[in-house]
Design a protein around this nucleic acid. Structure first.
Lengths: 257, 257
DNA sequence: TTATCTGAAGTCGTATACGATTTTTACTAC
DNA sequence: GTAGTAAAAATCGTATACGACTTCAGATAA
């Protein structure tokens, strides 16, 4: 508890994320962040591009900005390592993992396998409450103009529908895959352009769920993922020149932060 | 260096695993175990049933038996939590996760999707060295009489073949799934009974790989996984009394397919 | 007896401290 | 200027210490 804390906002991009997270926690703003909070914060920072691929994450810095010691930071990094967000070379700290076009394609391929299966299994078991919440999310997404918030609502929409399937392994895998896909920062941009068409898909999916038509729901989900894949992969090709044959685009940024 | 160390063998089952691991490390036996070593040791202990589902893992005890403080133990537990081996309820330590029949089935279903895909993609890229090592593993498996060692060789056989596909996400998922499946202790037993038939499958797979016949290789892998699934699920039903139809038996047990 | 309370013991979670390793800097030799 | 080296600084990994939380045992009251 230093007097310098309020006097030095020290507004790094990550610091802003931390402040935002603290606010969203609601309660006493001076409480210590849990390791799980830190996992979420770091994950979000990586997904949103605050920590770009290849960036070294120094434990003491993170600890300072999070207001904890480095022990919970290190534990959070272990979790993120397991989820494929960072690498932890021994005695050399943590580095944000690189992403390649091949991995992006692979993540989509796997989603195309897993999601229709989840949807099909879920339809017969969907509760009224779940359908209601899903419908609300569709409406909120239609209004949403912030890419990150839209992305969150979108994830939640699918999660709500899928978790009725009661297939925890598939859900765990899907969560991991979505993390990979969301990490493509352009994804968030493309999301916005894709907004309208995506919302249409969502309505189709929701309708099929309401009717209890598992086949149709699974088909709509497959089309949905396929559509997103096309847009995102296309955008990737556009942004990275052409075929995306290169993978190491890392030139050192002049100024960090 | 305390005088008590050599005087107290303290032969808990886990202690034996630790000693075994130390021996397999070869070099100076008095080196401190790394966090990664601890992850492997705990994972192995859970898979082999030394730590049964539901068991509470106390950090101080583990640290003592591993010869480290509880900090690396906690980090290892975080990794294992992410992989689905333990749960970490806040302020209540670590507990070995329970396994259900539904999860076993789900793990097999996912393997049946992922493995043929990996095999198909790998065939064209397999190196001579990989084929040679795979062949050696088949031979060693045929001789092997220890269930755990057999299981390790088996995992390695598939890993060698699949990693040529260069699909790291699928590999990561598959590793997780195999962890789940291996946790069924009876799995190791059934492995032995299944030994002969399994080795036949392996030879077929390897032959197809050598011929560069991707379709055949993928088909053999699918059959292989399917065969194991049948045996393991059947054994589960046998050991757990009845059909295991409690709540998730989606297929009628009247007649076998 | 059964239930509730209270204090003690046990366990967890993390801040601090420190040795070990890596990286950077400054210097020298070529 | 480049290469090589040695000292200094930065960073990591973990043992220790301690406050916080949970659990359990014994006591009291109904």
């Amino acid at each position: 508890m230093s007097a310098a804390e309020p006097a030095a906002p020290a507004l790094t991009p990550f610091g802003r994320l931390v402040a935002e997270h603290r606010r969203s926690l609601g309660s006493g703003a001076d409480e210590r962040l849990s390791t799980d909070d830190i996992v979420q914060l770091l994950q979000q920072a990586i997904i949103r591009g605050v920590f770009a691929p290849g960036r070294a994450l120094r434990q003491d810095d993170l600890a300072l900005e999070l207001g904890v010691s480095k022990i919970p930071v290190r534990e959070a990094l272990r979790t993120l390592e397991a989820y494929g967000f960072v690498e932890l070379p021994h005695n050399r700290g943590a580095v944000v993992k690189e992403l390649t076009l091949a991995q992006l394609r692979e993540a989509f391929d796997l989603r195309q396998m897993v999601e229709p299966l989840l949807m099909r299994a879920a339809v017969a078991r969907l509760s009224e409450a779940a359908l209601k919440e899903a419908a609300e999310l569709v409406e909120r997404m239609a209004q949403e103009r912030n890419a990150w918030t839209f992305s969150r609502l979108n994830s939640r929409f699918h999660q709500i529908l899928y978790e009725a399937a009661d297939m925890p392994l598939s859900m765990q895998i899907l969560t991991m895959l979505q993390g990979y896909i969301q990490r493509m920062s352009f994804m968030q941009l493309s999301m916005m352009g894709f907004n309208r068409s995506s919302n249409e898909d969502h309505r189709h999916i929701l309708d099929a769920c309401r009717r209890g038509d598992a086949d149709a729901a699974a088909r709509h989900v497959a089309d949905h993922v396929s559509g997103i894949k096309t847009v995102v992969m296309g955008l990737y090709a556009q942004l990275h020149g052409d075929t995306g044959a290169d993978e190491l685009h890392s030139k050192p940024p002049r100024h960090a932060n």
